[in-house]
Design a protein around this nucleic acid. Structure first.
Lengths: 95, 95
DNA sequence: GCAATATTTAGATATTTGCCTAAATATCTA
DNA sequence: TAGATATTTAGGCAAATATCTAAATATTGC
């Protein structure tokens, strides 16, 4: 999980909204897309960014592909934030 | 402190490195710049982004302009991350 | 006040990003 | 296997971003 990918992924409002939609549980790509006025192709691009950052996991369920939050994410992203600002006293660099 | 500005600001590796340089205490623009192979003008642009996100504060000290981390930042940014992933049980939305 | 130093602003250029349409791929059902 | 549905990939365009050089602004010390 690279800091660069994670922060880049979270910098887009649509992607943050996708993550928030997933807080309630796993959803298919189509179900996620219902909330956005954007083509499926563009959505798919955002999914790819979120996956590369390892913020979401996917699983094919028949015809659908189901997305869910990577459950370890909160802790890891929080750690990254603390790393940048040095809270927690560590000096180690996350890059 | 808008989520959009904060996450955008943190998405750039140079800006994260600037923040990390400031963990040790306040530094002038020039002192910060010593660590980067980039023109003062480009640095200044990054400072503006960090200031707009309210991640850093500035103070003129004679000829110099001194940058420091906004000390309330760690808590606020962490709260934003938790908001996106819903840790902490809140439902309220940070936009 | 002038020259020197520090920083920002303006304007230009190259890269990246987000979105679209069209086409490809995967799975289901008849 | 053919047709329908769900999702991704490819290719292109416009807007945003990161960088540069040059010029402007602010402050110090003589």
């Amino acid at each position: 999980m690279r800091q660069q990918d994670v922060f880049k992924a979270m910098a887009d409002p649509t992607r943050r909204a996708i993550l928030k939609r997933l807080r309630g549980g796993a959803l298919s790509a189509g179900e996620i897309g219902e909330a956005f006025d954007i083509t499926p192709a563009s959505l798919s691009h955002h999914f790819a960014v979120l996956k590369r950052a390892d913020l979401v996991r996917t699983e094919r369920r028949g015809q659908y592909i189901v997305y869910s939050l990577n459950s370890t994410v909160v802790e890891e992203v929080t750690r990254m934030v603390l790393d940048v600002f040095n809270a927690g006293g560590r000096e180690a660099g996350g890059q």
